[in-house]
């Protein structure tokens, strides 16, 4: 009976030469920019403002990771970020499900969520500090308040537009309401929720760093401020690079988890 050439599915993946081309383009671009930066900094840059990449890499060792105070600051920020992100995920998905699962909740509460989301949260920072203090608790709270909204919004959005055909199909096979949610609604939501998670990751980092920059006396944010104010760009850039790596690492983690859940799309 019907046979099919399964190789056409493998062809959806990129051929090897092309993948190599993409990778080398990317590396060359980054290297080129670094070289330009290096030349500019060495020839025209003012020492207190710009540091050439080689100096930044040099600073990474002794100044940043050599200084136990900075080292523990990096660790602190990383832990705060992780905790804030996990709390955002738990809280955001729970609230999103609560609001989005019923027609009444969605119509009644979703506009309120969107309204809160639209408020620039920096204005709430003094209040957050007042409630949670200057330490990690305040920074985590501020991170959560940034991270939770994209997750709530995407969780609610993900529950919409479930295929009525699939729901009817499930019901015709005898699925209960709970089974429809478990086997139809949840899998349908995954892609949208993960888009929210990645956005939330960035937002949580923003929240934590804002808190550190403005009020706290610890963490990466505090030290970037110190370095900037003392015209010490090399360790400043080194810290920023560390921060970027941190964000990339967590993003990658989220992506890996997402891949596990969306194998059917590949």
């Amino acid at each position: 009976m019907a046979t099919i050439d399964t190789s056409r599915f493998a062809a959806a993946a990129m051929p090897n030469e092309q993948r190599l081309g993409v990778a080398s383009t990317r590396v060359l671009l980054v290297l080129g920019l670094l070289v330009l930066w290096e030349v500019y900094a060495r020839l025209f840059g003012r020492a207190g403002m710009v540091a050439p990449p080689t100096d930044v890499i040099g600073a990474l060792g002794p100044t940043v990771f050599g200084d136990p105070k900075v080292r523990s600051a990096v660790l602190l920020t990383f832990v705060e970020l992780g905790v804030a992100f996990l709390m955002s995920v738990a809280l955001g998905i729970a609230l999103g499900l609560l609001v989005g699962i019923g027609e009444i909740g969605r119509r009644g509460l979703f506009p309120i969520v969107l309204f809160l989301y639209a408020i620039p949260q920096v204005v709430l920072l003094p209040l957050v500090v007042l409630i949670f203090g200057l330490g990690p608790a305040g920074k985590i709270a501020f991170g959560v308040s940034h991270g939770v909204f994209p997750i709530i919004v995407n969780t609610i959005a993900g529950m919409r537009n479930v295929s009525p055909l699939l729901v009817r199909g499930a019901e015709s096979m005898g699925a209960s309401r709970l089974q429809v949610i478990r086997y139809v609604v949840f899998p349908h939501m995954v892609a949208t929720v993960f888009a929210g998670l990645r956005l939330a990751m960035t937002m949580t980092l923003l929240g934590v760093l804002l808190a550190e920059l403005f009020v706290s006396t610890g963490g990466i944010g505090y030290f970037t401020q110190v370095y900037a104010e003392t015209f010490n760009p090399a360790p400043l850039f080194a810290l920023i690079a560390t921060l970027a790596l941190m964000a990339v690492a967590i993003n990658e983690l989220v992506r890996r988890v997402e891949l596990r859940f969306t194998r059917w799309k590949q």
């Binding site: 199909g169 096979m173 059917w264």
Partner: peptide, 20 residues
């Protein structure tokens, strides 16, 4: 619905795309 006695086949596929 009487899933023990009646099965449906619709015009469009109702296979769940996220499962094999």
């Amino acid at each position: 619905a009487r899933p023990r006695e009646i099965a449906f086949v619709f015009q469009e596929s109702t296979l769940f795309p996220w499962y094999t």
